[in-house]
């Protein structure tokens, strides 16, 4: 059972969270606000491929797409990062060098995290050594669910200590934690361990990035900021596939944390198919017609 510590709220009421989260989906984002929002969303994408069949060729194609998502459209920024398995970091690092797009790597026995801490730390060291500028780690959900909260914080702290200058994103895997109370608790533990970002999911477990889980995490980020003045970023990942959903998230971030968080340095989308839907929407805004899937270049 989570307990109240200091003056930070620990209890989360799912009914009101759902009500508030759905209010963000009812904002009307049109015209200029829509185009700007979608461009902003492109700049926040961590373009991701995390499959057993990933190959250097696939990763290079993804990297080209990341740098220039759509040559047919003007004013489209590069995405924020390309996110791959550790074995693909070298390829991504080469393909992206000088582009400004960062290389992110999942590590720590992704997605389950069920390997020894030593081998998880080694994995991080080697990914960073190969050129990963961002590390997406998973927490030990089993430990958290059986009441060993300090292990979660401690492992985050240890991973952080081997990250060097790489940014650390901590994946809570909200779909496995299930309750918003646990998600709030995990957010605080990850932040306490030194997370630069907290991230909802691996994308391998459903439900992944729900608005409700996201709101609770954003509120944890806000509480930490109000208390310490320190900034933590947010990354929803998994399940966000449409431009419309991306705008809902931007609205939620804006109205919970303010415009200051609407930057790739503080907010990311972990996604693979989202980018194409955003590009199709931008085509629609530019030409008035819906683009066919073949109008948008493949990765």
């Amino acid at each position: 059972m989570p307990v109240r510590s200091g003056n930070s709220s620990v209890f989360v009421d799912p009914v009101m969270v759902a009500q508030r989260a759905s209010s963000f989906t009812r904002r009307s984002i049109k015209q200029k606000a829509k185009i700007e929002g979608l461009r902003l969303a492109v700049s926040m994408v961590d373009l991701t491929t995390l499959e057993g069949k990933d190959s250097p060729g696939k990763v290079r194609a993804l990297c080209r797409k990341a740098v220039r998502p759509d040559p047919g459209l003007e004013g489209i920024p590069s995405v924020a990062a390309v996110c791959v398995y550790p074995a693909m970091v070298t390829v991504a690092h080469e393909a992206l060098s000088g582009s400004g797009v960062r290389v992110a790597s999942v590590a720590t026995g992704f997605p389950a995290g069920q390997t020894s801490l030593e081998s998880r730390l080694d994995e991080v060291r080697s990914a960073v050594g190969d050129g990963a500028e961002e590390i997406d780690m998973v927490i030990s959900r089993g430990a958290l669910l059986t009441g060993d909260a300090s292990r979660v914080t401690d492992e985050v702290r240890q991973v952080k200590s081997v990250c060097g200058s790489a940014h650390l994103k901590v994946i809570l895997e909200t779909g496995e934690l299930e309750t918003l109370d646990r998600i709030a608790e995990a957010s605080r533990l990850a932040i306490a361990g030194g997370a630069d970002f907290i991230k909802t999911s691996t994308g391998k477990v459903a439900p992944a990035a729900t608005m409700e889980a996201g709101l609770v995490m954003l509120e944890a980020i806000r509480d930490h900021f109000l208390k310490t003045g320190k900034v933590v970023g947010m990354k929803p990942a998994g399940g966000i596939r449409t431009a419309k959903e991306a705008l809902h998230w931007l609205v939620m971030v804006k109205e919970t944390l303010g415009n200051e968080w609407l930057t790739p340095e503080r907010f990311r989308f972990g996604a693979s198919s989202l980018l194409d839907d955003i590009l199709r929407q931008l085509h629609k805004q530019a030409s008035g017609n819906y683009a066919a899937s073949y109008d948008v270049p493949e990765a």
């Binding site: 606000a33 109000l226 900034v231 804006k254 303010g258 415009n259 200051e260 968080w261 340095e265 503080r266």
Partner: peptide, 23 residues
Amino acid sequence: MCPRLKAVSNSNTELGDSWEYEP
């Protein structure tokens, strides 16, 4: 939005800095 949240923003926010809803 909140002055306290605003105070320490030091990041490059050329895209998001002014994201406002249109009428």
